[in-house]
Simulated scan of single mutants.
Amino acid sequence: MTTDVTGTNDVEHRSEPAFGAEVLRYSAFTADPSGGNPAGVVLDASGLDAAAMRAVAAEVGYSETAFVTAGDERTRRFRVRYFSPLAEVAFCGHATVALAVALAERLGPGEIVLDTPAGEIPVSTAADEDGAVRATLTSVPTRSRPALAAEVDATLGALGWSPADLDPALPPHVAFGGNDHLVLAAASRARLADLDYDFDTLAEVMRRHGWTTVDLVWRESAARFHARNPFPVGGVVEDPATGAAAAAFGGYLRELGLVTRPGTVAIRQGEDMGRPSDLLIAVDPRDPRTRVTGQAVPVPRR
């Protein structure tokens, strides 16, 4: 049975699109609603089938919308599905953070468990001194493997990049943290900033290999990376903040031996598209899971 956790005095970020589903709008991985990655949140989707959820996600128009299809307020456990405007995805990190913050604002901070198509996702929520809510999700076990030459060549062709544009110290991998992502490390910040790719060609390459995004990164330091995530398979040119890719990237760093003891890595994303986002990942070389932390704030309706 789905718990009614929709009560709130703040109606600024609500709307009611098709099928009568009330949609909340939050921007994740930011304290500023003009930054981060916006996500739709439907706290009661018990009456919606997959086609209806996809239609709602398409009407909302964000890269993903999270739908609570069942839940128990007492145990704080909820079943969740995620839809882009084009298709269902197994897991979405920024929509998870948005959903967790929305639930914490209604139920109070604490532990939440989400049952997703990718598996069980525990989420810890806590309020800062100023009342802002942060969420830390724990991913499913990650894995990472070297990308095949054909995979890399096809992707570089769609991006308009050459092998010389890549950082040889950070080899291409296909990393998993709930979804598969191709990780390509740019040799310079300028190369990362200059992104103008063939949308249809990259989408076809990604569909062929089952990738959710291409995770383009640049290493500023051992503890700080910049990222961009083309997402044409979801009908979106680029994601401003991608929690699932950040979780997978934690597995990538662990697999390459770049994390030798438990620590955190900051990821700056969305800057080149005018929606700066900050993701913090915690990686432990002894634990295959990645912990991804971020804030989320309501998006005011215009």
Rank of each mutant, 00 (worst) to 15 (best):
R106L: 07
R268G: 08
V89R: 06
L43T: 08
G270Y: 13
A186C: 15
A70F: 06
A227N: 10
G93I: 02
L107C: 12
A175R: 00
R291A: 07
E64W: 01
D215N: 14
Y197R: 02
T290Q: 03
T96C: 02
V133M: 01
S221W: 06
V68G: 07
V152I: 14
A50E: 12
G270A: 03
E204F: 00
H209Q: 14
A185V: 06
L279I: 15
A66R: 03
G160L: 03
F83A: 10
R79W: 02
V217G: 03
L103V: 09
M273E: 09
G61F: 13
A50K: 13
A55V: 12
P85A: 00
G108T: 13
V42N: 10
A66E: 00
F249G: 01
L258Q: 04
G119M: 10
D167Y: 02
G235V: 11
V133C: 04
S84R: 06
L107Q: 09
V214Q: 00
R77F: 03
V297G: 08
A203Q: 14
H94Y: 09
R25H: 14
W218Y: 15
G108R: 07
T213M: 01
R291Q: 09
G234P: 08
V23T: 06
R77Q: 13
R228H: 10
P141T: 02
P17M: 13
T142F: 02
E64L: 11
P33S: 09
A52F: 07
G119V: 12
A98C: 03
H226T: 02
G274R: 06
T155C: 12
P240F: 07
R207A: 14
V41A: 04
L99D: 01
E73F: 05
R286S: 15
D72T: 13
S144T: 10
A51E: 15
E271P: 00
Y197W: 05
A175H: 07
T2W: 03
P240C: 09
G36V: 02
S63L: 00
A31R: 10
L48V: 10
Q269P: 03
R134V: 13
A66Q: 02
T116A: 06
L195N: 06
T293Q: 06
V60D: 03
L258K: 15
T2S: 13
V133S: 08
A223N: 11
V297E: 03
A100N: 03
G263V: 10
